[in-house]
Computed example of a mutant assay.
Amino acid sequence: MIFHHPQYEIEVINDENYVLNSKDNLNHYQHILHDPADVYQPSAKHGIRVKENGVETSSVIICASGGATGIFENSYLIKNGVIFICCTDHVYALQIPSLDLIWKNNLDWATCFCIYEFGDDLIVHGELVISRVTTDGIIKWQFSGRDIFVTPNNKTVPFKIVGNEIILTDWQDYQYRLNAEGQQLG
Rank of each mutant, 00 (worst) to 15 (best):
E165N: 11
Y176E: 02
K155C: 02
T156N: 14
T156W: 06
I96E: 05
K45D: 09
Q142V: 07
A68T: 06
T135V: 14
M1S: 04
C86S: 04
F143V: 11
A44C: 06
Y18W: 09
Y29F: 15
F84E: 04
I48V: 11
T169M: 06
L94R: 03
T156R: 13
G119A: 10
V129I: 13
V55T: 12
Y176A: 08
Y174H: 15
G67P: 10
D147H: 14
H125L: 02
I115E: 07
W103P: 03
P97N: 08
V39R: 14
I10P: 05
E73S: 13
L122K: 09
I123Q: 03
T134L: 11
S58Y: 05
T111C: 07
I115R: 14
T88Q: 05
E117W: 03
Q41H: 05
W141F: 10
F113T: 06
G145T: 02
T156P: 06
L122A: 04
N74Q: 15
N25Q: 12
E52C: 15
D108V: 10
H34E: 00
D147Y: 13
Y8N: 02
E117P: 13
L94Y: 02
V39P: 03
Q175H: 15
K45H: 08
G66C: 08
M1A: 01
S59A: 02
W109F: 11
Q95V: 05
F3C: 09
G126A: 13
A68Y: 12
N17P: 01
F118M: 03
V19R: 14
G126Q: 11
V124L: 05
I167C: 11
L178P: 12
I138Q: 07
I115S: 09
H31Q: 14
N21C: 00
S75H: 10
V55H: 11
R146N: 10
F159Y: 14
F118E: 00
F72W: 13
F84A: 02
